[in-house]
Design a protein around this nucleic acid. Structure first.
Length: 552
RNA sequence: UGGGGUGUCGCCAAGCGGCUAAGGCCCCGGAUUUUGAUUCCGGUAUCCGCAGGUUCGAAUCCUGCCACCCCAGCCA
């Protein structure tokens, strides 16, 4: 794997600069998911950046649950998150919970109150909104803004002690209601939430806001670089305000990068949740989902995902990366290691007329091209075979290299056959194709060339299997008005086919990946068993055959 | 509209005042091929959002304009 050593991304440049100017000796980052959903490939980008930046400078990265809002979070997700991160192959230094710092957050809030930098506000949610002003007009000070330190301390402690209802009061940072940056107009830093927290139980009924808790968590853990996505850029002044006035030293630095977008894919948790809850997909791990569990079930490898992320790059420009790039990375990874097997997804009966009923010839197939050390396996060639329905055409288009009446084709690893005739049903559908094989053309024993090579299965040995084929969940965005994403859903994103696989595949375990020759890369599904084989197509092969093409 | 960002090939993305604007994906040729796969060669921006300016010289500096994204949660 060649590396572009010369080119650094902007985050590396910042970190190098900080190392040189601040004399940092240990770089520490953190990956801070909120446990309110499953990780998707967008999170994988953040993960990749957090871990790779730390690693590049010999530092470490913590996994920290950003769990300051008990109403949205659940333990169900914390286990799934750890599992997904491990699957990707990242190793965190410390496993932390933001909620483990609630004591410190509370103490720091008290400290700010004592410094005259925070106050308890009695304004309602609606009033706060009114007082905040707009993008163009400054806000007004809350009538409670000038309460004494003593009163604020008393009220804040009573908030903590559960004396007030949810929403009755908040603790606000006293900054500047006229700031051109709305995030600095006395942001709420604590709110009352009588809610059982998945990690701290009923210990607290007030919870710090992200903008207050996050910089504190970073500082406490000794995070040097807090890497996050672009939408937090406007919050950076507040992040810095918190670490400054809480008097942390050294202080972490927040750096923002553009999040990942993929063509024909939704990434927002809100939309993914709708897909699951409204039944458009089978679950969070539906192979069409961009979740890590979905990609895993689909057959994606951690290596392919990380390679993709590295290739897509890290920058600040909003972008939408072509899903073709992700698919390319998977093919490139699987090409060198997925064993070549045979599956006929849409079977058509082929009878070799010059073979006897119980006559079989054993032929050997290589597991990996150009890699004899990957081994071989033996299969039987017999009178009755299955070929792919699309590999036979009565009236083929030009440049059709497959089987046609009186045409010749090679059966992979076996013989060259010649089509003699075919039968159809009343509707004209082909039911059986007949051919003769040429005994002189056994694989490896003949120089005779024919243009086409087909995959095939011996009907006597083939095992019934289900194949699940996937297409993008979303259709291309139309020009002009934006539709609700539900209307963009691809009605044909999932198709199930009943066909056959070669006997060796019965031994496959869920998660095993193969290339089914000429059909694509497949992965044994979670539900796969020897009795009921099920394979998901992770990605098709590149295909330069264009049946409709006009040839000159 | 106030603030904060971003604009380099169809899609990502290098480039940080000086040879003919990296690379990847996609696409198109051609060679090899018992996967129309892989592999291998070769091709694809006289131009860097637009307009001015500075300079011997700019995608890189300056000015103005345009487009897009983010911020008015007691979400993260």
């Amino acid at each position: 794997m060649e590396e572009n050593a010369a080119s650094k991304n902007f985050i590396e440049e910042f970190i190098e600069q900080d190392i040189a100017e601040l004399g940092l000796t240990h770089i520490r980052t953190r990956f801070p998911p909120e446990p309110n959903g499953y990780l998707h490939i967008g999170h994988a980008k953040a993960l990749f950046i957090d871990f790779s930046m730390a690693e590049r400078f010999g530092g470490t990265c913590n996994l920290r649950y950003d769990d300051t809002n008990p109403a949205k979070e659940d333990v169900e997700y914390v286990e799934a998150i750890e599992n997904d991160i491990r699957w990707l192959g990242f190793k965190w230094d410390k496993l932390c919970y933001g909620s483990d710092y609630f004591d410190q957050c509370f103490d720091l809030a008290v400290k700010l109150i004592k410094k005259g930098l925070a106050y308890v506000d009695d304004l309602t949610k609606d009033e706060v909104r009114e007082y905040r002003g707009t993008l163009t007009e400054p806000g007004r000070n809350s009538p409670y803004r000038e309460r004494s330190v003593e009163e604020n301390l008393d009220l804040f402690c009573r908030m903590r002690d559960g004396e007030f209802e949810d929403g009755a009061r908040t603790l606000r940072a006293k900054i500047d209601m006229a700031s051109s940056n709305i995030n600095m107009r006395d942001p709420a830093i604590y709110r009352i939430r009588h809610f059982t927290h998945h990690h701290t139980g009923d210990m607290w009924c007030i919870y710090p806001m992200y903008d207050f808790a996050h910089p504190i968590q970073d500082a406490i853990e000794g995070v040097t670089h807090s890497l996050c996505s672009l939408e937090y850029e406007a919050h950076r002044p507040l992040y810095d305000w918190v670490t400054e006035h809480c008097e942390f030293d050294p202080r972490p630095r927040q750096i923002e990068f553009a999040r990942l977008n993929l063509t024909n894919t939704v990434m927002s948790k809100r939309y993914l949740r709708r897909l699951v809850e409204e039944g458009y997909v089978a679950g969070w791990d539906d192979p069409r989902m961009p979740t890590l569990c979905g990609l895993r079930r689909r057959g994606y490898t951690p290596e392919a995902i990380k390679d993709f992320l590295a290739r897509a790059g890290i920058a600040k420009a909003d972008s939408v990366v072509d899903t073709a790039m992700l698919e390319h990375c998977l093919r490139e990874d699987l090409n060198v290691r997925a064993h070549r097997m045979i599956a006929v997804l849409d079977p058509l009966r082929l009878v070799v007329e010059n073979m006897q009923e119980l006559e079989f010839h054993e032929v050997e197939l290589g597991n990996l091209p150009d890699q004899p050390e990957a081994g071989t396996r033996k299969v039987r060639f017999g009178r009755e075979l299955f070929i792919e329905r699309e590999d036979f055409a009565i009236d083929p288009p030009k440049k059709y290299f497959r089987l046609k009446p009186h045409g010749e084709v090679r059966l992979k690893g076996a013989y060259i056959i010649k089509c003699t005739r075919y039968e159809t049903d009343e509707q004209g559908n082909v039911t059986t194709v007949y051919c003769t094989y040429d005994p002189e053309t056994r694989s490896g024993e003949s120089d005779r060339k024919v243009k086409g090579t087909l995959h095939w299965l011996s009907a006597a040995d083939a095992i019934p299997a289900e194949f699940r084929l996937y297409e993008p969940l979303l259709l291309d965005e139309q020009e002009g008005e934006e539709r609700d994403f539900i209307e963009r859903l691809n009605p044909d994103s999932f198709k199930s086919l009943r066909g056959y696989v070669e006997p060796a595949l019965a031994q496959a375990n869920p998660g095993d990946r193969f290339q089914f020759i000429r059909m694509g890369y497949f992965c044994a599904d979670l539900e796969h068993t020897a009795q009921r084989p099920v394979f998901n197509r992770a990605v098709g092969l590149k295909d330069s055959y264009k049946p409709g093409a006009i040839d000159n």
